[in-house]
């Protein structure tokens, strides 16, 4: 028996815990356990042969369509957690289920990322020698979508982020806010169920940052996408329906804001 099994013993959903089936509560009302879109069970992430624990036993459920902010000081493990949720990295121990897929067991996560996840990075990470249109197209290229369908989808999403007139521009001709809009369009173009944004306003002035947050929230509502934002800004975190506070790799607070 290895460490993995010991740590996770009893932590997974068992047979009694049946999602989405109704039951009658003590008050006579009908209830059901909603199956979370994302479930983390005792997730541990270690570096340097266990010398550094970036995540130290995270248990977390996030439901479809939620807007969640993850807040914490630098080095608290929030970006590591975001990488786990985006299937960019695997935990040292523990389990992660997203949309019923076991991310720890799954060998090739690229298809999962392509179908389910949209990333928005702090520094937008656009490809400098490609136009706005081409940057937004990148996630669709491996999908086998027809050219016509691809063009329509990209045009729609570029229109949605308000960059119709910039579609042929290169990123170096755009302002910081416009670049982040392109990054949001790229994150949404493949119709993901989850948008993961790592400090999306970190490199922007407060006014542009606000516009970008509004756009993210608008997209979250329009496309009913689950939005998870990592930030160290309390103001930004407070905009979310739910805020999860992390410190030293552990969740120290998980609350609904309204």
């Amino acid at each position: 028996m290895d460490d993995n099994q010991i740590v996770n013993e009893g932590a997974y959903p068992d047979d009694e815990y049946i999602y989405n089936e109704t039951f009658i509560g003590e008050d006579g009302e009908e209830y059901y356990y909603e199956e979370p879109l994302i479930s983390l069970f005792n997730v541990v992430k270690e570096y340097d042969k266990g010398m550094v624990k970036a995540l130290n036993g995270i248990n977390l459920d996030i439901f479809e369509g939620e807007f969640v902010s993850i807040i914490g000081p630098s080095g608290s493990g929030k970006s590591t957690l975001l990488n786990m949720l985006g299937a960019l990295d695997k935990p040292t121990r523990g389990k992660i289920f997203i949309g019923g897929i076991d991310l720890v067991k799954e060998k090739d996560l690229s298809e999962f990322r392509q179908e389910k996840i949209g990333f928005v990075f702090q520094l937008h990470n656009l490809i400098p020698n490609l136009s706005v249109f081409d940057n937004v197209q990148i996630p669709l290229l491996p999908t086998g979508m027809s050219n016509k369908e691809m063009k329509e989808r990209i045009s729609e999403i570029i229109r949605a982020v308000g960059l119709e007139d910039k579609r042929n521009q290169r990123p170096n001709k755009l302002s910081g806010g416009q670049r982040q809009r392109v990054a949001i369009a790229r994150a949404l173009v493949n119709n993901p169920s989850i948008i993961l944004a790592d400090e999306p306003t970190g490199s922007l002035d407060s006014k542009t940052g606000e516009l970008i947050l509004n756009l993210l929230m608008e997209m979250h509502e329009r496309y009913n996408v689950t939005l998870i934002i990592v930030t160290h800004d309390n103001g930004v975190a407070a905009l979310a329906e739910r805020t999860i506070k992390i410190k030293e790799g552990q969740i120290i607070e998980d609350k609904y804001n309204y």
Binding site: L88, D108, E115, I117, F121, N125, L141, N190
Partner: peptide, 8 residues
């Protein structure tokens, strides 16, 4: 970036 958007 390419990996993050699902390129194999």
């Amino acid at each position: 970036v390419l990996k993050s958007v699902g390129w194999k």
